[in-house]
Simulated scan of single mutants.
Amino acid sequence: MTHLSLRHAMVGIPPPDQVRAIVGTNAASVYGLDTKALRLIADRIGPTIDEITTPLEAVPTLHGAERQGCGYFAFRTLGPYA
């Protein structure tokens, strides 16, 4: 669900520099993290900028047990966070 949530949240943000900053480099800079070490891990486990900036074809519809434990907040389509 995290990859899908990121794809939904990053729609319309010009890639790749702004997306990269939002999903990682800003926090790494603020907290003084070792970006070289993090890059090795990110390259291994992803997601890539291309994966994040590929729009969803449709917002997932999860019901009942499928939805349990899933962060569905990113897929709001109504209300103040839509």
Rank of each mutant, 00 (worst) to 15 (best):
N26G: 00
P16L: 03
G64P: 04
A42N: 07
F73E: 06
A74R: 02
A42I: 04
I45C: 08
T2K: 11
R20N: 11
I49A: 05
L33A: 12
C70R: 15
P14M: 10
I13N: 00
Q18N: 11
E51W: 03
E66A: 14
Y31W: 15
S5D: 08
P60K: 06
A28G: 02
M1D: 11
Y81M: 10
H63L: 08
I49V: 14
P47I: 05
L56V: 09
H63S: 12
A21E: 13
E51M: 11
A82Y: 01
I49D: 02
I45M: 06
T54H: 02
P80A: 05
Q68Y: 08
L33R: 13
Q68D: 13
Q18K: 15
T61K: 11
A58D: 11
T48K: 02
T48H: 07
A42T: 08
A65F: 06
P47F: 05
L38D: 01
R76H: 09
M10L: 14
G69K: 08
G12W: 07
P15N: 05
T54D: 03
T77W: 00
L6G: 00
L33Q: 14
T61G: 02
T48G: 06
Q68G: 00
G71F: 01
P80K: 05
L56E: 09
P80V: 06
A28V: 07
L33H: 09
I22Y: 04
I45H: 08
C70W: 05
I52Y: 01
V19S: 01
S29K: 14
A82I: 01
A74T: 00
G71Q: 08
G46W: 09
Q18C: 06
V30L: 14
K36Y: 03
G64H: 10
D34L: 06
L33G: 03
P15V: 04
T53I: 02
H3L: 14
L78R: 05
T48V: 11
L4P: 04
A65L: 09
T77R: 13
V30K: 12
G71K: 07
F75G: 06
I22Q: 03
V19P: 02
F73H: 03
V23R: 04
R44K: 15
V19L: 06
P14S: 14
L62Q: 09
P15D: 08
Y72R: 10
T77F: 00
